[in-house]
Simulated assay, not measured.
Amino acid sequence: MGEDHGVRSRTRDERTDDLGTGALLEVLARGELTVQGRIREASNAVLLCTATHEGVSVDCVYKPVKGERPLWDFPDGNLARRERAAFLVSEATGWGLIPATVLRDGPYGEGMVQHWIETAEAEEPDDSDGPGDSDGSGEGGDPGGRLLALVEGEEAGQGWKPVALAEVGEGRTALLVHADDPRLRRLAVLDAVINNGDRKGGHLLAAPDGRLYGIDHGVSFHTEDKLRTLLWGWAGESLTDEARAVLASLTLLLADGAPLATRLAELITPVELDAVRGRVADLLRTGEHPRPSGDWPSIPWPPV
């Protein structure tokens, strides 16, 4: 369903490290796009590009609408708009969890263009400090350790949150866990607001500066509950005070006529925008992270 461009092999361009989000958006929106190659592991067309504007070049990914595969539960040709909408909501939270994203014309027509994030190398696991991989398939890229892991037994261990039991072959099971990390917790709240239907492990990018980003939000903003994620570890737990404050702020920003609502109305339908407002209101009312609904698979497949 989604794209997995978590394998990063390009050299960092230190000239763009000090660009703020506004400057990045300017280059992405107005720069000349030069296609460098295609990420073939993706199910939709994802092109690796360079955007150049006024002497500044930025690595980015370009997903043309023409390269989107039709989905049975989403309208054709608007996944790129949902990616842009997700970025706008992320920016409104102040958490900056999604790379700079624009909607623009490109070599193959309209599409989403997003800043390419270089990822940090994951440290080798230390079994004395956290769970070990039961089959060597733990994932993650956090500078201080992994974000996801498979562990033997039924206990997540200190610093980890349990998600679900997973089959690992030969009749064996292991517990899928994710780090009890405040960055992941913020992302879990954002996913609940935008109703992200595809939060895979490969869509978590930890940058060398310690920031965490989520990518691939084309299957978001559905009116039905389609939250599907690997970040269920906080399900049913109370929201943090920070999250409550952010949600209260979003309530104002999503009101009719407010700037965020006006910009989202250009990207998603009125019914979908109302659904965003409803999800924010429900989170504030319950004061808890959502639980799986039971009406929709709660874990994306494949999970990585």
Rank of each mutant, 00 (worst) to 15 (best):
115 H>Y: 14
201 G>W: 11
184 L>S: 09
176 L>P: 01
155 E>F: 07
96 G>D: 08
156 A>W: 00
156 A>P: 00
179 A>L: 11
185 R>M: 04
129 D>L: 15
132 G>Q: 08
149 A>D: 15
137 S>G: 12
212 L>V: 05
226 K>H: 02
189 V>G: 03
187 L>D: 00
181 D>C: 05
176 L>C: 02
157 G>S: 03
206 A>F: 06
208 P>V: 03
146 R>P: 10
162 P>M: 09
142 D>R: 14
125 P>G: 08
180 D>G: 08
105 D>I: 06
140 G>W: 09
158 Q>L: 12
109 G>T: 10
174 A>F: 04
190 L>A: 06
137 S>E: 14
189 V>W: 03
139 E>M: 15
176 L>I: 05
108 Y>M: 14
118 E>I: 13
129 D>N: 13
193 V>H: 08
216 D>Y: 06
159 G>Q: 03
97 L>W: 06
201 G>N: 11
218 G>C: 13
207 A>V: 08
130 G>Q: 08
101 T>K: 04
155 E>T: 13
211 R>V: 03
130 G>W: 09
134 S>G: 12
127 D>L: 15
208 P>D: 02
188 A>E: 05
115 H>Q: 14
157 G>A: 04
104 R>W: 07
219 V>K: 05
150 L>E: 14
172 R>N: 08
105 D>N: 15
198 D>E: 04
188 A>F: 00
161 K>Q: 15
224 E>A: 14
151 V>M: 11
103 L>K: 01
215 I>W: 01
125 P>V: 11
187 L>N: 01
170 E>L: 15
115 H>F: 13
138 G>F: 08
188 A>Q: 02
207 A>Y: 02
159 G>M: 08
143 P>K: 05
172 R>W: 05
175 L>A: 00
95 W>H: 06
219 V>P: 05
96 G>T: 08
134 S>F: 10
190 L>I: 04
198 D>I: 02
137 S>F: 13
106 G>E: 09
142 D>P: 06
152 E>T: 14
102 V>R: 09
175 L>R: 00
198 D>H: 03
99 P>F: 06
210 G>H: 07
152 E>N: 13
218 G>T: 11
98 I>W: 00
141 G>K: 00
196 N>Y: 07
192 A>I: 07
135 D>N: 15
149 A>V: 09
168 V>C: 08
113 V>C: 14
211 R>Q: 09
96 G>H: 11
166 A>F: 15
154 E>D: 15
213 Y>I: 04
164 A>W: 13
111 G>Q: 09
109 G>L: 10
163 V>P: 02
222 H>G: 12
106 G>V: 11
180 D>H: 06
207 A>S: 12
157 G>P: 00
145 G>Q: 02
222 H>E: 07
99 P>C: 06
188 A>I: 01
174 A>C: 01
98 I>E: 00
105 D>L: 12
196 N>L: 03
114 Q>R: 13
188 A>D: 03
226 K>G: 00
217 H>E: 02
207 A>N: 05
183 R>H: 12
161 K>Y: 07
195 N>E: 10
165 L>K: 14
212 L>S: 00
97 L>Y: 09
215 I>G: 00
125 P>D: 07
